[in-house]
């Protein structure tokens, strides 16, 4: 049953991605990217990763769609149709890369295999077996996120902070052309 849901969700995901690649209306592309995020959130849920599904649904389908729409309001929503001559070169590169990667998957463990090296590694065993006693909270993801891999999460938080600083540096003030002192004043607040 899970397999069927999995296959269908992946199918929808592929259709959405192809539609996004072909569309020329940026507004449509952004709306499709919201759908794409929601579908991948459903897939994360099917693959037993509720924390990730939760985040993807909130961030991908919510915030990033809103931010992209905000950008489109500033830059316009039509793109030029792509040039024909680029198509074939790009398609060739993409197909060759794809085949090389697909060849590489033969070395990957089977999907859902419990004897997968990722599952049998001592790190995973430690997280699953000992975190309940060591940290004392049931959600292993939270204990790994906040405690075992605290450094990593600190780094991620700093990245988010830095991105906000960079966006403020780029867009924080009104345009230089035709700005009155008043507008600047209101913008700073």
């Amino acid at each position: 049953m899970t397999l069927v849901i999995d296959v269908f969700l992946f199918l929808f995901l592929m259709i959405t991605a192809v539609a996004m690649a072909r569309m020329n209306s940026l507004f449509g592309v952004v709306m499709m990217s919201g759908i794409y995020s929601l579908l991948s959130a459903a897939l994360f849920m099917v693959m037993d990763a509720p924390d990730v599904a939760f985040t993807e649904a909130a961030v991908g389908a919510g915030i990033s769609t809103v931010l992209m729409l905000g950008t489109l309001a500033l830059v316009g929503r039509v793109q030029k149709p792509a040039l024909r001559r680029h198509h074939f070169a790009a398609l060739g590169i993409v197909i060759v890369t794809g085949i090389a990667l697909a060849y590489g998957t033969y070395d990957l463990p089977a999907f859902g295999d419990a004897d997968n090296p990722v599952q049998t590694s001592t790190v995973t065993e430690r997280y699953v077996d000992v975190s309940g006693r060591e940290i004392g909270i049931p959600n292993i993801v939270t204990s790994v996120l906040a405690s075992y891999r605290g450094y990593d999460t600190l780094g991620e938080t700093v990245v988010v902070f830095t991105a906000a600083v960079a966006v403020l540096v780029l867009l924080g003030r009104a345009r230089r052309r035709g700005v009155t002192g008043e507008e600047r004043e209101s913008d700073l607040q």
């Binding site: 509720p50 924390d51 906040a146």
Partner: peptide, 8 residues
Amino acid sequence: GDYGPGGG
């Protein structure tokens, strides 16, 4: 977030 999916 300690008990179910979720967190900061």
